[in-house]
Amino acid sequence: MRRLNRALDSQQRLRASAAIFSAVERLPEFRAARTVAVFAALPDEPATDEVLARWASTRRVVLPRVEDDAMRFYACRPDALVFGAFGILEPQGERPCPAGEIDLVVCPGVAFTADGRRLGRGRGYYDRYLGDPAFRGFRVGVCYAHQLVDDLPVEPHDVRMDRVITG
Rank of each mutant, 00 (worst) to 15 (best):
T35D: 03
T35M: 10
R59C: 15
L42C: 03
A33W: 11
A32D: 10
V36K: 09
V24C: 08
F30W: 13
A37R: 08
A75D: 14
L63F: 06
T58S: 15
T35H: 09
R65A: 07
W55T: 03
S57A: 15
M71W: 02
R31S: 12
M71Q: 01
R59Y: 02
L52R: 04
A37Q: 08
A33I: 03
A41D: 14
R72V: 06
V62K: 01
V61H: 04
T58L: 14
S22A: 08
R31C: 13
P46A: 11
A23I: 00
E25M: 04
A32N: 12
A70F: 10
R59D: 15
W55G: 05
R34I: 10
F30Y: 14
T35A: 12
R59M: 15
D49F: 13
R26Q: 14
V51F: 02
R60P: 03
A53T: 14
V61S: 09
E25G: 05
W55K: 00
L52A: 05
P46M: 11
L27D: 04
W55Q: 07
V51K: 09
V66D: 07
V51M: 12
R26W: 09
A75L: 11
D69Y: 11
P28I: 00
D69M: 11
V66I: 09
P64V: 01
A41I: 09
V38Q: 08
A37C: 06
L63S: 06
P28E: 10
S22G: 11
R72Q: 13
D44I: 02
P43R: 01
R72E: 14
L27G: 01
L52S: 01
P46R: 05
A23H: 07
T48N: 01
V38M: 12
A47R: 08
V24Y: 09
F21R: 00
V62H: 06
A32R: 10
R72I: 05
R72L: 14
T58N: 12
V61W: 00
A33S: 14
L63I: 14
A47Y: 09
V62W: 12
A53L: 15
R59G: 11
F21S: 00
L63E: 02
R65E: 14
D49R: 03
F73R: 03
R72P: 12
R31W: 01
A75W: 06
A47P: 01
F21G: 00
Y74E: 04
F30S: 01
R26L: 12
D49Y: 11
W55L: 12
P43T: 09
S57K: 15
M71K: 01
R60E: 02
P46V: 08
S22Q: 00
A41V: 06
F30C: 02
D49I: 01
D69R: 14
A56C: 15
A40P: 02
T58H: 15
Y74A: 10
P64G: 05
P46N: 05
E67Y: 09
A41G: 08
R54N: 15
D49S: 12
F21M: 00
A75Y: 07
A32G: 02
L63D: 03
A47K: 02
L52F: 13
A37E: 11
V36H: 06
E29K: 10
E50L: 07
E29G: 05
S57N: 15
T35P: 07
L27W: 09
